[in-house]
C-alpha cells in the first residue's frame, strides 16, 4: 500500500539532499523544493508526545528532512543488531557548528540530532524508532519515539518498548527500544547528557566540507575523518589497518561507557580512541565487577590470545549479564568480533 509513497519519498530525499549540498543551485531549484521548517519551540521546550511536533521531516515516514536538517553518516557506526540508521543534524537559522579538534564539534543551543532505526529493505523497510537529542539552554535532552505499525506516526515512548523483528542476518529477536534513562546510560558524561556519534574523527571530510560551504560549520576540523569507513574494515590486512579497525570499533561501540566520567568508569577500562596506555585498554588487566561475564578468564585482553580475553568473550555473547554492550544489542556483531579478535591476535605478548 505504501510503496508509491516510498518511491516518491526516495526521490524527494535525493532532491532535498541535492539542495542541501549545493547552496549555489539556482533560485528556481530551491523554490521548487521549499521544504517546511523545523518547530524551534518544540526543540527548545516541553516534551512533545509525537515526533511530528518537531517538524524535523518534510515527509517523516519517507525520512525526507525539513529545511536545515542535514543527513549524515558515521565512518564507523555503533552496531545496533544490523539496523539501518538514518542520521540527521538540525541547526537553527543563523547558527553553526564550531570545529573543536577530532572530537565533538561545539553544537549550538537549539540544535538537534535525529536518528531513525529501520529494518528491512526497499518497500519492506519498517521504521522502528526515532531517537532525538535536543540541545536546550539547560543541556541536552534525549527522547525516544516509537513508530506505529502503520508507519504513519512516531509517539513518545519514555519507558521504551520491545519489538519482535528479524535482523538482516535472519535472526528473530526481541528488539529493545531504550527508555529515556537508558538513553542517558550511554549518553551520560560527568552527570550530563552529551552526543556521542558526530565526532569529527568519525565524519567524512566531504560532508564536513559541504556543510562548511553552507556555513553550517566554521571550518573542517583538524583530525577529521580519521576513523576508517567500516565497510570491509574488519577484514583489512596489515597491522596498522587491523589496529585502526579495532580501535575505531571499540571507540564507537564501547568508549561511551568505558571511559572516565561515564557509566562504566568504575571498571577502570578506558577504550577511547585517544587512550594509549595498554593497561587502560585492558591489556593484562584483571576484571573488577565482571561477575560471570569473566567466564573463568583472568584478563580483559591477553595479547596474542583472543580466546583468553574477557573483552572478546563478552562481545561475542548475547546473554544479558554477560553481553557487552549491555544496552542496544540483542545479537552478536560478527564483524566487530572479527575486528577485535584480529587485533588481539596480532598483539605482541
Amino acid at each position: 500500500m505504501i510503496r508509491p509513497a516510498h518511491v516518491l519519498a526516495a526521490g524527494a530525499l535525493a532532491l532535498a539532499a541535492a539542495v542541501a549540498f549545493h547552496p549555489g543551485a539556482g533560485p528556481a531549484a530551491a523554490a521548487a523544493a521549499e521544504p517546511p521548517r523545523v518547530n524551534d519551540a518544540a526543540v527548545q521546550q516541553g516534551i512533545p508526545r509525537t515526533l511530528a511536533a518537531f517538524g524535523f521531516f518534510a515527509d517523516a515516514p519517507g525520512q525526507v528532512p525539513a529545511a536545515r536538517v542535514v543527513p549524515y553518516r558515521l565512518n564507523t557506526p555503533l552496531y545496533s543488531d544490523g539496523a539501518e540508521k538514518l542520521r540527521f543534524l538540525y541547526l537553527p537559522e543563523g547558527t553553526h557548528l564550531a570545529a573543536a579538534g577530532d572530537g565533538l564539534p561545539e553544537i549550538p543551543v537549539g540544535a538537534a540530532l535525529i536518528k531513525t532505526f529501520a529494518f528491512g529493505e526497499g518497500a519492506g523497510r519498517r521504521l522502528i524508532e526515532t531517537r532525538v537529542l535536543l540541545h536546550r539552554a539547560d543541556g541536552w535532552l534525549a527522547l525516544p519515539y516509537l513508530w506505529n505499525e502503520a508507519q504513519t506516526e512516531a509517539r513518545l515512548a519514555l519507558a521504551g518498548a520491545r519489538i519482535d523483528l528479524v535482523t538482516p542476518r535472519g535472526e528473530a529477536i526481541s528488539y529493545r527500544v531504550p527508555n529515556k534513562n537508558q538513553c542517558k546510560e550511554c549518553h551520560g558524561l560527568d552527570g550530563a547528557v552529551v552526543p556521542i556519534g558526530p565526532k569529527a574523527r568519525n565524519l567524512a571530510q566531504e560532508w564536513l566540507a559541504a556543510i562548511a560551504a553552507r556555513g553550517m560549520i566554521d571550518r573542517v576540523p583538524d583530525g577529521a575523518d580519521a576513523l576508517p569507513r567500516w565497510e570491509g574494515a574488519a577484514d583489512a590486512t596489515g597491522g596498522a589497518q587491523v589496529t585502526l579497525a579495532a580501535r575505531a570499533y571499540l571507540d564507537v561501540n564501547c568508549a561511551h561507557c568505558h571511559r572516565p566520567g561515564a557509566m562504566a568508569s568504575n571498571s577502570g577500562l578506558d577504550l577511547r580512541w585517544e587512550q594509549r596506555d595498554p593497561r587502560a585498554l585492558g591489556v593484562m588487566k584483571r576484571p573488577v565487577a565482571a561477575g560471570r561475564g569473566s567466564a573463568g578468564l583472568l584478563f580483559a585482553v591477553v595479547p596474542g590470545k583472543p580466546r583468553e580475553s574477557i573483552l572478546l568473550h563478552r562481545m561475542a555473547s548475547a546473554e544479558p549479564g554477560v553481553a557487552m554492550p549491555e544496552l542496544g544489542k540483542a545479537t552478536v556483531d560478527p564483524e566487530g568480533v572479527r575486528a577485535v579478535e584480529r587485533w588481539i591476535a596480532a598483539m605482541e605478548p
Partner: peptide, 12 residues
C-alpha cells in the same frame, strides 16, 4: 524473564 540490561534496577 529479563532480556536486557546489566542489572535489575539502576539508580544514578
Amino acid at each position: 524473564g529479563q532480556q536486557g540490561s546489566g542489572e535489575g534496577l539502576l539508580v544514578t
